Amino acid sequence: MNKPKARIVVLISGSGSNLQAMIDCQQANALSGEIVAVISNRPAVKGLERADAAGIEALCLDHKGFADREAFDQALQAKIDEYQPDLVVLAGFMRILTPAFTEHYLGRMINIHPSLLPKHQGLNTHQRAIDAGDAQHGATVHFVTAELDGGPAIVQVAVDIEADDTPESLAKKVQYQEHYMFPIAVQWFCEGRLRLHKENKNHVSLFDGEPLPISGRLIKAR
């Protein structure tokens, strides 16, 4: 008997280019999971159109309609749980999540961040990497914990920063790699090769049962 596909809910806030990369893999039968819903906190974004075009349930839960962050997160959690997901994927979801929300999905929620974590947590990472004189920049997929961009890393891809790079050109190079690496991490989870493990007071990412280094598994840029 074939193992049921992992159920995936994707959260977005904008164009959904990383969502599209996952949809492409799913349609090519290169993903051992099924995206069962896409939820945006902003209305009328391109990512919802991408989901709808792929026949995936697409809905908006506008954060502006809630009194505070806690109320929104409670409503979002209730909506996500209707789909009984095995994995929640943050694909450009531009919200700071409450500790109660991250705890609820601990070990089954991942995010992609445009930097080589732990460097450059937060926003404006491309400009900050250039300003810091970094030789390389990149992206990291990590498990989500209550610490902003601080959960255990899963995988990283690095790109060289050239002398003539601007934040815009660097963003394009990094995003190109994101579209390659994010579905890989999702597939690892769906295959059961990836999990979050608590060791003493800290969490670590395990790949095939072995702890990953602090920067995650480095894969070669395409």
Results as ranks from 00 to 15, higher is better:
V88H: 01
V186F: 04
P167C: 10
T98F: 02
I96M: 06
E178I: 07
A221G: 11
D24W: 02
Y105M: 10
G92A: 09
G107I: 07
K3G: 13
E34Y: 04
D208C: 13
I35V: 10
K64E: 14
V155Q: 04
I110K: 05
P43V: 13
A6L: 14
A153Q: 00
R42W: 08
K79C: 14
D149Y: 00
I110A: 10
Y83F: 15
A91D: 03
Q177T: 11
I8R: 04
F189Q: 07
Q20W: 02
L48W: 02
H104T: 12
V88W: 00
G150L: 08
S15K: 06
V38S: 03
N41I: 11
S13G: 10
I12C: 04
K64T: 15
H104F: 08
I56L: 09
D81P: 05
Q175Y: 01
Q177D: 09
A58H: 05
M1P: 15
I80R: 03
G47V: 05
C190I: 03
V155Y: 00
L11N: 00
P4C: 12
I12N: 01
A91P: 04
E199A: 13
I130D: 11
E70M: 14
R128V: 14
D160T: 15
Q175W: 01
G216E: 02
Q136W: 09
E70P: 09
L106H: 03
A21E: 01
D81E: 15
G14Y: 00
A171R: 01
A53G: 13
Y83T: 06
F207H: 14
K46V: 08
A67P: 04
L206I: 13
W188I: 15
A44G: 14
S13T: 06
K3W: 11
Q84R: 10
I8M: 12
A51V: 01
Y176A: 15
R95E: 01
Y105I: 09
A135S: 14
I130C: 13
G33M: 01
N124I: 09
A54W: 00
A51D: 01
Y176G: 08
P114E: 05
Y83P: 06
G151I: 05
W188P: 12
P167L: 09
M94K: 00
G216S: 08
P211G: 06
A163S: 15
T98P: 00
E147M: 14
F93L: 12
M181R: 02
A135G: 13
A171L: 05
E82F: 09
N124A: 13
H142C: 12
V9P: 02
T166K: 05
G192P: 06
G33W: 00
N29Y: 10
K64F: 11
L196K: 02
P211C: 07
H137T: 06
